[in-house]
């Protein structure tokens, strides 16, 4: 499966990228549409989740992470993990639990 995908990507078909691009545009439309509805505190969460999905698509397909070896994936995980932990620790000061 992965071998096949690798093949298709390195075989340079344009179609995969165009499909992903259409998906990204769709998500943009959704996020703008959803922003009009008031979900209270969940609004920002929804917006961030959609942004994360878009990021995931860009990372894996446009940035070819899907066909890179594991070193790259571990690297990304380390970086994102660091950022998330920093957010959580910083907010331990601001949210009064």
């Amino acid at each position: 499966m992965e071998e096949k995908e690798k093949h298709s990507l390195t075989n340079h078909s344009y179609s995969v990228y165009i499909i992903v691009w259409l998906a990204l545009l769709t998500f943009t439309a959704i996020t703008v549409a959803v922003a009009g509805i008031n979900f209270g505190n969940a609004t920002i969460a929804i917006a961030l989740i959609i942004a994360s999905i878009k990021t995931y698509l860009v990372l894996t397909i446009f940035m070819h992470l899907k066909i890179e070896n594991n070193t790259f994936k571990v690297f990304i995980i380390i970086a994102i993990f660091f950022l998330i932990v920093t957010f959580v620790l910083l907010f331990s000061d601001y949210s009064n639990i």
Binding site: V85, L89, S92, D93, Y94, S95, I97
Partner: peptide, 22 residues
């Protein structure tokens, strides 16, 4: 080491939760 920066700020007025964790 990357997660303990708050211990420079125990007297700065952080929340008690933050002081505990750091």
């Amino acid at each position: 080491g990357s997660l303990v920066w708050g211990h420079h700020m125990f007297s700065a007025g952080m929340s008690d939760t933050a002081n505990f964790i750091f």
